[in-house]
Amino acid sequence: MGNDKNQNELKKVKEIIELMIENDLVEVEIADGDSKIHLKRPGHSAPAILPAAAAYTPAPVAAEPTAPEEDPNLTNIDSPMVGTFYSAASPDSPAYVKPGDSVTADTVVCIVEAMKVMNEIKAEVDGTIEKVLVSNGQAVEFGQTLFKVRPL
């Protein structure tokens, strides 16, 4: 019996550790009746006690994928509408464009489907595709940047 209890405790601790890692928590204290579990993760020189609310602020983030300093010469191709992004004319066609491709203002670069209407999106700029920021089938927002283009 005692063994079972220990097993359960162990399992609980493991779960909490996973939760901590998942949420990037440094310290957790759980009191449940008589038992009390206090866990602290190493490696973080975080304040010993975090106010509960602060735990949710995405920690003074080193984690944020620091946008590699934005190249000011690049132009965006933004989605003109809310919808679903398609990279190719049909599911079995090659993508309209990939990084490195030259485009003119009239080149169709993708389709955004909105309200069951397929909208071909044109580059609206002459240049070279630098980056494709969305993946096939992804939902996109109005104004969301779909491509980065290096203008001619």
Partner: peptide
């Protein structure tokens, strides 16, 4: 059924979809 706001030609789009075969 697919509806395009604008395209080069609907035949061209159909040609693309034809590549997948009878599923379309």
């Amino acid at each position: 059924i697919l509806v395009y706001k604008s395209t080069s030609s609907t035949n061209d789009v159909a040609v693309e979809y034809a590549k997948a075969g009878k599923i379309n």
